[in-house]
Amino acid sequence: MSEIENKTEHGSMDGAKESAAEDPKNDTGLGLGVIFFILAFLICFLSGWLLFPKLLYSKHEQPFNFDHALHVQETGDCESCHFLREDGTFSGIPKTESCLDCHTDEPMGETEDEAIFAAEYVAKQREVPWYVYAKQPDCVYFSHAAHIKAAGMDCVTCHGHIGESTSSRPYEENRLTGYSRDIWGNNIWGITKNPWDSMKMDDCAVCHEEETGHKGYCFQCHK
C-alpha cells in the first residue's frame, strides 16, 4: 500500500471518531436536511414541469377573431385566400386588399369582428398584424410550391384542421426565442401526435427521408 493510502487510512479513523461524537446533533440536522431536501426537490421539480412552460410563453390575442370555418364555407377552399403566386412563391396571409375583394358591402360590420376590421384596418389602410401560428424563423426557407405542387400534399397534412376553427386561439410566443409555440413546445415532453404539433427541422427531416430518401442539404431548407 502506498504512503498516501496509509496516511488516508489513518486519517479516516480520526474522522470516524469525530463524527461519532457528534451523533445526536447530527441526526436532527440530517433529519431537517432531508425534509428540506424533499421539500425543495418537490417544489422545483413540479415548477420545472408545470410552471416553467407557462412562464416561458407569452400569450397574444389576435387583433380580432377570425372564423376560418365561415370563410372556408364561403370560398370553398384554402387556396382562395392562401394561394401560390404566378412565380411559385406563396402568398401567405392575405393582405387587407385581398379581403376587400369579397368584403365589399358598405358599411361593413355584420359581425363585431368585421366591424373592427373595417374601422381599424380598412378605414386606416393598414394591414392586420396577424400572429402567424406556423411562422418559421427567418433562417428557414420553405417552399409551399414544392410541397403542394410537386409532392401533392394538402394543407391539412401540416397545418391540421385550422380551416374548421371558428375562433382564433391565442398565439403563444416563446419569450426567449420568439418562436411560435406551434413550431416547438406544445408538448414539453417533445411528444408529437400530429405533424402540426411540431415543425422543427427534425420533423421535416423525418418526412423528407421517407419521401425523398434524403434529409436534404443545408440550403434546401435554409437561407
Partner: peptide
C-alpha cells in the same frame, strides 16, 4: 474532508 466517512471511502475506492 477526509474526516467525512463517505468522502474517505470514496477516495479510497477511487484509488
Amino acid at each position: 474532508l477526509n474526516k467525512v466517512p463517505f468522502f474517505h471511502h470514496l477516495a479510497h475506492n477511487m484509488h
